[in-house]
Design a protein around this nucleic acid. Structure first.
Lengths: 326, 326
DNA sequence: TTGAAAGCGCTAACAC
DNA sequence: GTGTTAGCGCTTTCAA
């Protein structure tokens, strides 16, 4: 079996307390004893049991990450960055894909609480998970409204919408379309739409809105986009996520529509992946590094002091990546 | 503070043991008591503390996943699938990106052991992490050689290489190139190269091999590919991963090279993502679902019985996805 | 500077 | 059916 504190103590000829002291660097220990203990630990390949340690009320150094699905490149990059930052700070990451499954999300929330995680960062898509308030845990949200007292970090969605609108308008677009996911009442992402529409309203131009649910399969989405292109008169489209924008670009090309001459396209997200492998796409770039840093920083504040006052919203600036689609 | 077993017991007017019994459905309990306990639990929003439970030697239901980086679409999809399967089986997933950082990988291994994970699934790229043998933990590897007794699950790399070669040869390729990552001695992925070369050898055709390290940045890789295209005479390329293949395709197009007429390209991996968003790419598809299922199934066997005899290798069949690049 | 003893929240004999 | 008791591996008073 794995060696325990007592085994080390015995080998070093001291009490368990003393061993615990050198591990935690607690109190005063003679250099001699310290060394003896160190040797015993090395010899036994001793590994303190985090479980036992956390049972005394010590932090578990476990953080739960609840997002839609990391097979989506945006969340893959966000989660990857979060994992990196958390690791640096001594935290372990529990990965929770919530998909479109509220039950799974609830189950995970329960599991995380049962496992005494120190905190949670969540940005899932399911609506009406009341449990977020119930557990008295440090939680920070990304780009979603979860509950009254949970701070939201997001990119400046409204500014992003506006940037997209400006880009299209200055490129000559006068019959704009926006393709978004389903918009729910308190969702911060609605800003992308409102920002976009607000700009065109100033120019006295109407914006048509098409809704394609986020979780729509790629194939179905492709069909809907093809349908849209053949039935609508438009010269510019703002897709509120890059994957839709990429598909639209492909569908347009397949239909012999010249991009950006006949049709301009702007996306949203601008992950490193898309910029690397689909650089042609003009898109609004979310500052993922800053977002990840902010999420972790706020979470740490909350962990340190559950009562610390935090703003309800933290909006981080976006920029436009100039590709060849607009 | 959070309610504990004893609080529930008190409220229900029974002993802690009894509460524990109804939670674990252990032994015989009168319907009346069970109900009383249930009510008390509900009333207190009681959540058993997994830490305390696991301290008795119970499983933690924690699994560590160590891979290169989930911001790479292949690992994103694999990890996403693993997470899904593990969740179904009641496991929580600890995410560990090892990047190209052996120290991080070692640190994670240590952390996972300290946290008493039930098992580990690893497929990182770092060489010479001896620790994998040291910890006496259930471990299954994906597509990498980790240590003598750790089973490896992988796609049938040699067959994949062969399929790619056949495809190119039948398409008329007579001056083939293979672009792979750095090949280390015991790596299963070498099979892609050997399978590819073996086929062409039968046709008495030489294969040129180019090596581009897996972790090369997208930009640098692009430059190297451009360089390759301008300096080599070739009519067909097998890239041992899709991202390289996609870049090569883009670079070729930028150079006015007609694909597949003048140059044929076959990739490797065939994730859902690539098939959805870059369907033009002809590529060897790894059976990710089967791989994920196998990894978890084997791990469970090992967890149940550390001594269970497992094969050293499990190779899963690949298929060719027909795109327009070959 | 060190040790003995109590206890974190839970489960598992062993009684009754 | 139910309760008592003794730990799981560690940290932390409190004494010495």
């Amino acid at each position: 079996m794995k060696p325990k504190l007592e085994d080390v103590a015995q080998l070093a000829g001291v009490s368990p307390t003393t061993v615990s002291r050198v591990i935690n660097n607690h109190g005063a220990i003679s250099a001699k004893t310290r060394q003896a203990v160190q040797m015993a630990m090395d010899q036994l390949h001793y590994q303190p049991n985090s479980l036992a340690r956390s049972l005394q009320g010590k932090a578990t150094k476990l953080i739960g990450l609840i997002f839609y699905d990391i097979s989506h490149p945006f969340f893959a990059e966000l989660v990857s960055r979060l994992e990196g930052i958390l690791f640096e700070k001594g935290y372990k990451t529990i990965l929770c894909n919530s998909a479109n499954n509220p039950d799974k999300e609830r189950a995970y929330l329960k599991l995380l609480a049962a496992n005494q995680v120190d905190g949670i960062i969540a940005g899932a898509h399911n609506e009406g998970i009341e449990e977020y308030q119930a557990y008295d845990l440090p939680i920070i949200s990304f780009d979603r409204y979860l509950a009254a007292k949970i701070p939201i970090v997001s990119s400046d969605n409204a500014m992003g919408g506006r940037l997209a609108a400006e880009k299209l308008y200055l490129g000559g677009v006068r019959r704009p379309i926006i393709i978004s996911g389903v918009e729910t009442k308190k969702s911060p992402t609605n800003g992308r739409t409102t920002g976009f529409q607000a700009f065109f309203k100033q120019q006295a131009i109407d914006v048509q809105q098409y809704v394609i649910p986020f979780e729509t399969t790629a194939q179905l989405r492709r069909e809907r986009l093809a349908n849209l292109l053949t039935t609508s008169v438009c010269d510019g489209v703002f897709c509120t996520d890059d994957l839709t924008a990429i598909q639209l670009h492909q569908v347009a090309q397949a239909h012999g529509i010249k991009v950006p001459d006949q049709l301009k396209i702007v996306g949203y997200d601008g992950t490193k992946f898309v910029r690397d492998y689909y650089p042609a796409l003009t898109t609004v770039v979310q500052p993922l590094e800053e977002i990840a840093n902010t999420l972790v920083a706020l979470l740490q504040e909350r962990i340190q002091d559950m009562q610390v006052p935090l703003k309800a919203q933290y909006q981080l600036p976006v920029v436009l990546h100039q590709g060849q689609t607009a």
